[in-house]
Amino acid sequence: MNLLALDGAFVLEKLILIAVVISISLVVAMYATYVERKFAGFIQDRHGPNRAGPFGLLQPLADGLKLFFKEEIIPNNSNKLLFVLGPCLAMLTAMMTSAIIPWGGTVELFGQQVSLQIADINIGILYVFGVVSMGVYGMMIGGWASNNKFSLMAALRGASQAISYELAMGLSLIALLMLTGSLSLKTITEQQVTGLWNIVYQPVGFLIFFVCALAECNRAPFDLPEAESELNMGYHQEYSSMKLGFFLFAEYINMFISCAIIATLFFGGYDIPFVDESTWSGGAAAIGGVLALMTKTFILILVFMWIRWTLPRFRYDQLMNLGWKGLIPLALLNMVATGAVILLTMKQA
């Protein structure tokens, strides 16, 4: 375990990288709320927020301030510790996934090769699944600790949705992993930099993964855990002030991270399309890579929003049917087909 042979510069480098990544994801999540509202406005022939600051750009700050100044309510009969733990867990798990995304290649800073990835672990994508499966607990603990049956039902609804779609998500990825032969996101990206993007090989896998990512992020049309209009809010019904804000904020961070993961897995990560970066100097290539990944991520976030403001919400049985009877068999078929193709091409070679 060489990781634990600690080295000052290494720790400092990683700490700075973690701080930067987390603050970037916070800012992106903050402005995702703004973009979401603007986007919704444009789709509905409105302007969206435009009062706070030029073009309403200060709106996220105003929203945050408002949440902080709201009254903090902890229900009398709730389990206080767990009630507070719920949003903390939601935030924590949302942030943790960002650790393994390769944000770019390597840069040379102060005579050291700095990789723009917090941790390149050999189980990469499985780590994401582990953390995502932990995300359920924030929801469930929060819903249960509220001591409100509607919160509890919503928490169960959300948890069972998350578990169901995690399966299809994992199965859709297995086909991709058979192609890449590696779980490390860094390796997967580097394969795409030199070769074609994975979306070319795995269009069905991408589709399944994308739908499941929508469901995992509780985005419309799968936003049943928090259907405020017809299902009496969601697991965060009893939450107020910034604790509610944390739950909602965690979802935007989740959306950002999952878009980054989709971009990494299927759209070449920090690869700039139609350009050969290998001729560039190290710094320029790294910065260009980061920008490329960010652009891809933002486009995916916009697609998430576009879908949200187009499609109506699923009914719960439709959601379960789609997950268990639609996506999982499709993912299995995709897996078998990919395996067959790999086997055939290997025999010919």
Binding site: L126, F129, G130, M140, W144, L156, A159, E166
Partner: peptide, 21 residues
């Protein structure tokens, strides 16, 4: 990680389901 995904992530959630319900 499999221990976390399978036991902590899936089986314990089902336990929680049962107990909460």
């Amino acid at each position: 990680i499999v221990n976390i995904i399978v036991y902590a992530g899936a089986i314990m959630v089902l336990f929680l389901f049962v107990v909460m319900l």
